[in-house]
């Protein structure tokens, strides 16, 4: 059992729980067929059950094999990259997608991929310039 599997199963179970709660306010059946609540309700119950089964099985197997890994240190680069992208996406609400993305890419390149700052900045500028040329100038998609 890894921490990441626990997070995945807990996340899916929570999502299914929310869908389950929402589906209770929808009609389960209509006059001649199933209602809009039929699929979400039944599949949410099925999802939560499967999460529970997989969780128990993973814990039992983990305890039996002595493999209950908390492999958080290994995941640090991925988590830091996710954090940079979350901040960049939040900053995009101020009007520019490319500027905060550029900062995030430079940080990911220099801090996580081990490139020099100059190389990181250069690569980011070239990448974003090509993307701007294709999406904005050629395809007229408003990416700035």
């Amino acid at each position: 059992m890894k921490w990441s599997e626990l997070i995945l199963l807990a996340g899916i179970a929570c999502f299914a729980g929310v869908i389950l709660t929402d589906s209770l306010s929808l009609p389960y059946r209509s006059a001649q067929a199933f209602g809009p609540g039929f699929i979400p309700l039944n599949f949410a119950i099925g999802t939560i059950t499967l999460c529970a089964v997989l969780f128990v099985r993973s814990v039992v197997l983990g305890l039996r094999d002595g493999d209950m890994a908390l492999d958080l240190p290994r995941a640090v680069p991925a988590l830091v990259a996710i954090a940079f992208l979350v901040l960049a996406t939040a900053a995009a609400t101020f009007g520019s997608v490319l500027a905060p993305l550029g900062v995030a890419l430079t940080l990911i390149s220099s801090l996580l991929l081990g490139h020099s700052l100059v190389r990181s900045i250069l690569m980011t500028v070239v990448t974003l310039a090509v993307i701007y040329a294709i999406f904005s100038l050629w395809l007229s998609i408003p990416v700035i």
Binding site: A81, L85, A88, T89, A92, V97, L98, L101, A104, L105, I108, S109, L112, L113, S120, M123, T124, T127, L128, I131, F135, L139, I141, V143
Partner: peptide, 14 residues
């Protein structure tokens, strides 16, 4: 990694 992230973010935006 940088190229893929940039393409994915801008692709999703578009």
């Amino acid at each position: 990694a940088s190229v893929v992230i940039a393409l994915c973010v801008v692709g999703a935006f578009s």
